[in-house]
């Protein structure tokens, strides 16, 4: 019981501590490729700390939804964080929900953020909310198919179980269907974390942005919560990629302290690798027009479908 509690609290701390750093590293990598110096990798911490000290300016049109939305979204994302194995499999709360529950918790977070975007009565907010839901709708079928492909391989949608099983498989885990599902999920991760070519996280041109348009009306402490929530979600999506497809090095709960520390180090390296890969994708592609995005996500859908079909072929009828 005590060890479970410690494990949960430790996981919360790790998630909150690492997610701004991940954003910082992605920004730094992008700056490197753009031959800029770029802000320090710790800049996101400073930003959040600064915002937390500031007052919010609230639009006169808003209702309680606007105040509640950042908190509910943040809570949904953090709850999802406790269902995703970070560096230990056998999560103490892993029984409470599986991969599908994680997807729906992210959907809950998105729902409230998009709801708040409509609350201030600005066109930008509505545009952002509409586009966010549009992208989500395109992502969802591919996401579900890749979940199926992964779940079939191990026989469960429970994330701890998936990580445990895949890491037990060793190098055999790199089967064709697993790789195809990874490609599908990587594209989905781009869309879910709002990166180029789907969304541009660094733009402030209202007509091209999605996530930034939704949170346009937020300022001060509320913005800090929103930003932190987005960074946590990014870390969690990357963790899903890392621990579903490359869980090697992850520790089981009974592991000793050395193994756990080692697992933590391996986890951080994996996450940063994915972050850097994401930055490379971002700098090497241009943002796509909104109505071309169905093409991109159809590619993801096809990959996940191929993953399923190849699973059926490889594993036999």
């Amino acid at each position: 019981m005590i060890s479970a509690l410690v494990s949960v609290i430790f996981q919360i701390i790790i998630i909150l501590a690492l997610s701004p750093l991940l954003s910082g590293i992605i920004k730094k990598t992008k700056a490197f490729f753009q031959i800029r110096k770029g802000p320090s990798i710790f800049q996101p911490y400073y930003d959040v700390a600064k915002l937390l000290r500031k007052d919010s300016v609230i639009s006169q049109n808003v209702s309680w939804i606007f105040h509640a939305a950042p908190i509910i979204s943040f809570a949904a994302v953090m709850t999802a964080g406790l269902l995703i194995p970070i560096f230990i499999t056998r999560l103490p709360l892993g029984f409470a929900g599986d991969l599908i529950a994680v997807v729906y918790l992210f959907a809950l977070a998105r729902f409230f953020t998009a709801l708040a975007s409509l609350d201030a009565g600005s066109s930008f907010g509505g545009m952002g909310g509409s586009r966010e839901m549009f992208v989500a709708a395109m992502v969802e079928p591919a996401l579900m198919l890749s979940i199926f492909a992964v779940a079939l391989n191990v026989g469960s949608t429970n994330l701890s179980y998936i990580s445990q099983t895949v890491s037990g498989l060793g190098i055999d885990a790199l089967s064709p269907y697993q790789i195809l599902a990874f490609v599908a999920l990587f594209i989905i991760a781009i869309a879910e974390t709002g990166r180029i070519p789907v969304d541009n996280p660094s733009t402030h041109l209202e007509l091209t942005m999605i996530h930034e348009a939704m949170i346009l009306e937020y300022s001060g402490k509320q913005l800090a919560i929103v930003e932190l929530g987005a960074m946590v979600k990014q870390l969690l999506v990357f963790s899903l990629l890392a621990n579903i497809f490359f869980p090697w090095g992850i520790a089981s709960r009974e592991a000793g302290i050395v193994t756990i520390v080692l697992a933590l180090v391996v986890y951080i390296i994996k996450i940063f690798m994915i972050g850097i890969a994401m930055a490379v994708v971002e700098t090497s592609t241009a943002k796509w027009r909104l109505f071309r995005l169905p093409d991109l996500l159809s590619i993801s859908l096809m990959f996940s479908f191929l993953a399923l079909v190849s699973f059926i072929i490889v594993k036999g009828g």
Binding site: A107, F111, L115, L145
Partner: peptide, 29 residues
């Protein structure tokens, strides 16, 4: 599995639809 993928799309569009219903109907001015 195709049915599940379609169901996932349906779920996302349902969220879209009812977000519109509540967001446009109840929020702002």
């Amino acid at each position: 599995s195709i049915s599940a993928a379609t169901l996932a799309l349906t779920g996302a569009l349902a969220a879209y639809c009812f977000l519109k219903f509540f967001g446009i109907g109840f929020l702002a001015l």
